[in-house]
């Protein structure tokens, strides 16, 4: 049973209009992509949509109140809220550099939560 799905690529500001032929829940062909990232996005999106998670985490004794963070890899879209709940409990009380891992393998999804800003002590 095949289906045609229309998507907007979110990989870059261009937002190519993609047409994906889907069979049994998987992409069989992709049209309309301007680059390979778009093609890869379409394939992932019809199977299991994933997203980069970005947020902030409370700091203590540092030069900022909130440390911005991201997931090192995209995680399943349906897990975003659970991941948010997991990181909301954190407090960062030591200086960090952008890229430092704050939580390894969040919710076992294969992505770390890393800091995205260099933050010193207050």
């Amino acid at each position: 049973m095949s289906d045609t799905v229309r998507l907007t690529c979110i990989e870059c500001p261009t937002g190519c209009a993609l047409t994906v032929l889907v069979e049994e829940g998987k992409a069989v062909s992709v049209e309309g992509y301007g680059c390979r990232r778009g093609r890869d996005y379409a394939i992932a999106e019809v199977d299991c949509p994933v997203r980069i998670l970005t947020s902030t985490v409370a700091a203590q004794g540092l030069s900022v109140r909130m440390v911005p963070v991201r997931s090192s890899q995209p995680i399943p879209r349906g897990c975003l809220m659970d991941a948010m709940n997991a990181i909301r409990a954190l407090t960062i009380d030591r200086p960090v550099r952008a890229g430092d891992v704050l939580v390894e393998d969040i919710l076992g999804l294969g992505a770390d939560i890393v800091a995205t800003r260099d933050v010193e002590r207050d």
Binding site: C12, T54, R70, A98, T116, R117, D118
Partner: peptide, 12 residues
């Protein structure tokens, strides 16, 4: 694809 702080951080 960087976050805002990461992009700024490169220049800082």
């Amino acid at each position: 694809a960087l976050t805002g702080p990461e992009y700024a951080g490169r220049f800082i």
